[in-house]
Amino acid sequence: MHPETENKSQSNIFIIYLLGFLFTLHAALPSYVTSTFLARFTSENFVGIMYTFSALLTIGAFTLIPRVLRKFGNYKTAMGLLIIDLLSILGLAFVKNEFLIYTFFITGFVTVALIGFNIDIFLESFSRDATTGKIRGTFLSTANTAWIIAPLVGSMILTDGDYWKIFLAAALLILPILFFVHNNLKKFKDPEYKIIPLKNTAGEIARNKDIRDIFIVGFLLQFFYSWMVIYTPIYLYTHIGFSWREIGIIFSIMLLPFVLTEAPLGRLADRRWGEKEVMSIGFIVMAISTGLIAFIEIKSIALWAALLFITRIGAAMVEIMSETYFFKKVHSSKADIIGLFRTMRPWAYIVSPVLAIALFSVDMPIKYIFVVLAVIMFLGLHWSLELKDTR
């Protein structure tokens, strides 16, 4: 690569790291309080249904996104979605009508997922396979720094149930994102987005064993996140009795592994280690530590922070290795496959609440859903161990 082109690419990657941090902070600020916010208007079961419905719409949106990209390009699509997201989060902050609150929540859920996809396209276009692990690891570490900051900031903002303050702060973060996208990525050169029928894309994935297995690994990881995001705050707040300030401290410590481990693990994936071994160890750590949640009822910040910290060590190992593996196998022009890979999150938000509702319907105490989640994480070993390392 020409030195001038290399420098330009590095500059663009730095901008995308910055965008990743700001956008993740925007999404993370309300993420752990949204389920509790919605539960003020309805039951815990219906909150799960809301997430499921939002996820269904997200999957539908992902099937259309390659056509949207081909017509408008990634830059215009990202700008449009950011504006819609801004309006949605402002609606959650200030609207009192219950139906409109649900509508804004669903719209925001969908747009956040699609904007994350836009950022994927930007980043993958400036990446080379030889440095994918390093770039993805640094990007995820940068973005996950926001996940650490968000609970602390949120716990300071959220007083006396003033959820509107959280949503307003999240809305304000979109403004610098719009500025950086407009100023730095307006001339982004789009790859050729191939419009491939969903049936053909699914067939291509099914025929490629490694891609198929990494899709399943991605789904299981997103299943873990979805169940944790929806039910851990409810469990800690309602059943263990922590305050939001205490939960903010716990969650910030819990998320440290994403910042501390993903960048170095990404570099090691490029140079030394195979992805599947690290992924498999990650699933074991996730399973054991998640299962222990059901058996701890002590209200101790240190104990809960330590336990949830361990769950995220495992999750970070699986996340960086699955991301590195996937993007070494798939080029940025394959918007259809990348789009389907990003539907693993909404699919998880469909399946996990439905399963939780089924468990609640037979009077299973909420703490035991973490045992079920642990068993599901153990199942991930089957698919992670079947992968063929990229080295």
Rank of each mutant, 00 (worst) to 15 (best):
I196N: 07
T232S: 05
L236D: 06
F223Y: 13
E262A: 01
P233C: 08
I250Y: 02
F188I: 13
T238V: 10
I249Q: 05
D210H: 15
V217E: 07
Y237K: 10
N200D: 15
E246Y: 12
I214T: 11
F242N: 11
F223A: 10
L185G: 03
P197A: 09
I230A: 06
D190G: 09
T201I: 13
I177K: 03
R245S: 01
D190A: 13
F188C: 08
P233I: 01
L265K: 07
G203S: 14
G248P: 05
I195S: 05
L255W: 11
L265E: 08
T238Q: 03
I240P: 09
I177D: 09
I177W: 01
V229G: 01
I205N: 02
I230D: 09
H182N: 03
F223S: 05
I230C: 09
R207I: 08
P264V: 03
D213R: 02
Y237V: 03
T232G: 04
L221F: 14
V217Y: 06
W244I: 04
I195A: 02
L220H: 13
G218E: 09
A206G: 10
P197D: 03
P233K: 14
M254T: 10
W244R: 04
Y225S: 15
S252Q: 08
I253L: 11
H182F: 11
F224S: 01
L198V: 02
L265V: 11
T261F: 15
I216T: 09
I196T: 11
I214V: 14
Y193K: 00
P233R: 15
F251P: 01
K209Y: 11
F251E: 04
V259W: 15
R207T: 06
D210V: 14
L236P: 09
V229Q: 07
L185Q: 04
G248I: 06
D190E: 07
Y235R: 02
F219R: 06
I230M: 10
Y225R: 05
F251M: 03
T232H: 07
R245I: 01
D213W: 12
T201Q: 14
V259F: 15
H182Y: 12
M254K: 11
F242I: 02
V259L: 15
Y193A: 00
N200P: 07
E246L: 10
G241Q: 00
T232V: 10
L185R: 02
K186M: 02
L236R: 00
I230E: 08
T232Q: 07
L236S: 06
V229I: 13
P233T: 06
P197W: 15
I249G: 01
I253N: 09
I249S: 02
P191V: 12
L221Q: 08
G241C: 02
E246G: 13
I195N: 07
L220W: 13
V181P: 03
I214Q: 00
L185I: 02
V229W: 09
V181K: 01
T261K: 11
